[in-house]
Simulated assay, not measured.
Amino acid sequence: MKTIVLYSSRTGNTKRVAEAIAAALPQGTPCLDLTKPLPENLASYDCVFLGFWVDKGTADEASRKVLQQLHNKNVALFATLGADPKSDHARKSLEKAAGLVPEGVNVPSCFICQGKVDPKLIEAMYKMFPASSLHGRNPESEARHKAASTHPDAKDLQDAAAFAHEVLLGLEMEG
C-alpha cells in the first residue's frame, strides 16, 4: 500500500506527530509539509495521512484547502490542539475536518493529541478576550496552557505510531 504523510504545523507539534506516524509506516514513506508544493503524483497514494493543528474548532486554513482537494481512496486524519484531546472540542474538531474530505473518500480513522500553544497566540487571546472567557487570562487557561506545553510527549508519539500501524493494518485487511 502506497502511503504519504502530509502535515501543517505552527509550533512543531504536528510535525513531530507526523514524523512519528511516518516512521511507523513502510520505509520511505514521504513526510511533507503541506504548505510547500505537493507532489504531482499525490493522487497515486492509496492512503494519505493528513495532520493539522486545530484552529477555531477545525483544521487550520492550509490543511482545510488540501483536505477539500484530496480524492485519494483513503485519508486518515491526525491533529494537535491545546485542549484536552478527550474533550468534546477535540472530537468536534476532528469531525469538522473529516467533513471537509470530498464525498467518496474513506476516512478510516482519526487521531488527536495535545500540543503546546504558540505563546504569541496565547498573548493575543489574553488581549482579545476578557478574563471570564475560556480564552481569557485566568487560572484555568494558564493551567491548560501549562499542561499543553509538555505535549506532544513520548506517549503521544507512541500512540500516533500505533494509530498509523492500526490504520495500515485495517486497510490491508480490507483488501
Results as ranks from 00 to 15, higher is better:
residue 42 L to C: 10
residue 138 N to P: 11
residue 63 S to R: 04
residue 122 I to P: 05
residue 43 A to V: 08
residue 105 V to L: 03
residue 48 V to K: 00
residue 87 S to Q: 05
residue 24 A to E: 08
residue 58 T to A: 13
residue 134 L to R: 13
residue 41 N to V: 02
residue 114 Q to D: 06
residue 74 N to E: 09
residue 131 A to K: 12
residue 77 L to K: 01
residue 141 S to F: 03
residue 86 K to N: 14
residue 30 P to E: 10
residue 129 F to S: 11
residue 121 L to T: 14
residue 34 L to P: 01
residue 21 I to V: 14
residue 45 Y to P: 01
residue 106 N to Y: 05
residue 81 L to M: 15
residue 91 R to N: 08
residue 100 L to F: 08
residue 130 P to K: 14
residue 48 V to H: 04
residue 103 E to H: 09
residue 67 L to I: 09
residue 130 P to S: 13
residue 80 T to L: 07
residue 139 P to Y: 00
residue 27 Q to G: 00
residue 110 C to R: 11
residue 65 K to V: 11
residue 65 K to L: 11
residue 125 M to W: 10
residue 35 T to D: 12
residue 31 C to F: 04
residue 61 E to H: 03
residue 54 V to G: 10
residue 120 K to F: 07
residue 30 P to A: 09
residue 38 L to M: 11
residue 139 P to D: 01
residue 37 P to R: 08
residue 110 C to Q: 14
residue 46 D to A: 07
residue 36 K to H: 06
residue 128 M to P: 04
residue 98 A to L: 02
residue 128 M to Q: 15
residue 59 A to K: 06
residue 69 Q to F: 02
residue 138 N to S: 11
residue 135 H to A: 15
residue 82 G to Q: 06
residue 66 V to P: 11
residue 88 D to E: 14
residue 75 V to I: 10
residue 72 N to E: 01
residue 95 E to Q: 15
residue 45 Y to K: 00
residue 33 D to H: 07
residue 49 F to P: 03
residue 47 C to T: 13
residue 135 H to R: 12
residue 75 V to C: 02
residue 71 H to E: 00
residue 47 C to M: 03
residue 79 A to V: 01
residue 121 L to C: 06
residue 138 N to L: 08
residue 88 D to P: 05
residue 20 A to S: 15
residue 67 L to G: 09
residue 133 S to V: 08
residue 111 F to N: 04
residue 103 E to L: 08
residue 37 P to N: 03
residue 78 F to R: 02
residue 36 K to Y: 02
residue 86 K to T: 15
residue 124 A to H: 12
residue 122 I to T: 14
residue 74 N to G: 10
residue 97 A to P: 13
residue 25 L to K: 04
residue 105 V to E: 03
residue 130 P to V: 14
residue 42 L to I: 14
residue 70 L to D: 00
residue 124 A to C: 03
residue 64 R to N: 09
residue 132 S to R: 12
residue 19 E to W: 03
residue 19 E to P: 08
residue 87 S to M: 08
residue 97 A to I: 07
residue 106 N to K: 13
residue 52 F to G: 13
residue 103 E to N: 11
residue 92 K to A: 13
residue 55 D to K: 12
residue 22 A to I: 03
residue 131 A to T: 05
residue 93 S to R: 06
residue 141 S to G: 03
residue 129 F to H: 15
residue 94 L to W: 05
residue 57 G to F: 00
residue 79 A to M: 06
residue 42 L to K: 06
residue 123 E to P: 05
residue 74 N to K: 09
residue 119 P to R: 07
residue 126 Y to C: 00
residue 136 G to N: 05
residue 80 T to V: 13
residue 56 K to F: 13
residue 47 C to E: 00
residue 142 E to L: 13
residue 90 A to G: 10
